[in-house]
Design a binder for these strands. Sequence first.
DNA 1: CGCTCGATGTTTGTATACAATATGACGTAG
DNA 2: CTACGTCATATTGTATACAAACATCGAGCG
Lengths: 222, 222
Amino acid sequence: MSRASDRAYSQIRNMVLSGDLAPGEQLREEQLAEICGVSRTPIRDALRRLESESFVRRNDSQRSFVADWSLDDMEEAFELRAMLESHAAARAAVRVSPEQVEQLRRCNQAIYRAIAGDAPDIPAFLEQNRIFHAIIMEASASQRLALMLSRIIEQPVVLRTALQYDREDLQSSGREHDELLAAFGRRDPDWAAAVMKSHIRRAFHAYADAHKRGSGRQVEGG
Amino acid sequence: MSRASDRAYSQIRNMVLSGDLAPGEQLREEQLAEICGVSRTPIRDALRRLESESFVRRNDSQRSFVADWSLDDMEEAFELRAMLESHAAARAAVRVSPEQVEQLRRCNQAIYRAIAGDAPDIPAFLEQNRIFHAIIMEASASQRLALMLSRIIEQPVVLRTALQYDREDLQSSGREHDELLAAFGRRDPDWAAAVMKSHIRRAFHAYADAHKRGSGRQVEGG
DNA sequence: CGCTCGATGTTTGTATACAATATGACGTAG
DNA sequence: CTACGTCATATTGTATACAAACATCGAGCG
């Protein structure tokens, strides 16, 4: 992570997720180069990577723009994510090791701690949630599945979603993780897949509701 | 397609698929630059793109190698492709337009023509087969699904697979396309998904059989 | 004999200059 | 007033030189 292109990648990605770079905004290589304090060469690398992860889009004449996810786009992404991650959960159910189950248990405890109290610790929730799902992907033992989810779906969706959660959603999320653990305990792939699908559908509706409420400014920087 | 990086991309991709560049072989930027007659800059672009499409892999120290697909890798890829493309077929079944159905019909007729006679025209088969599946993806109206399939699964798998088909496999492929058309005619998403899944599973076993027969040299250049 | 460390060449990363292409503004003809 | 072509400018693409990182191999040491 010490290469200039890596640093530029992270920096641009953060600016996109925080909203410093607004959806639809054009990204000029030279401008980004100045912001990141590097030359255009590593910026171009970073943009290609961000493009392959759907953070950035390019038009016909190769100009880059911050990806603008409509509600339909998000639903499409959630639909795919539900399909892929429930598949992963099913595979994981029959492959997960006792150690991984224990990791998942500890991870979900950390999630409960993060959302206890008056002011839920959203960054901690997000991080533990990311780890939880990452362990499942690992247990599913399908590199390509993991690649697909991380590259195209997971990051843009997950990272934006939890910002929408209210307390109740956060609690539900924790409970669904518990149910997933139960399904893993019984090594029941169908149950695991169903729980995961439900988990992700609910997350989508939490997002959609918030989207309707505060239309247009779900993500605000700072 | 006139940019140097695009030409380099196609050229390297062809060399990978034809076997001129063997699986596992290291790809040096300078060497490729010389082969393609361009500088390293567009080669780097091309390699990034090929990497995102799983034609090329990179190790920890950023060196590039031709992706080496083991039988397990292929099965994993086929499994994902079956899942994604059956989903696409289901969506297409309730969205496909009469014009698209007609296109599919004509396309499959072209496939039958390509595999009739003593010497099946494999390149024509491949091309029409590609078009057939592309029309279905278009009818499924899910950009992200299309992106996912094309970027990570479809190309490496499909392009290598038909080289394995014997005459009977080719016939089956055509018949399965017909059945898909029947499912579309009834606008039956479950039927369409089931046919597509079966279609792809059979393709995998055709590949696996050929793999076992001629182990290690399924794809030979020239 | 095996190991570590360091020298050396190979390969990738970055900066910069220049070329090619797209865009938008402006002027002119119809 | 519109449509079209031309030119200026903004933006991306490419080549090249140099810097950094890495692998390889051999010498010295335990």
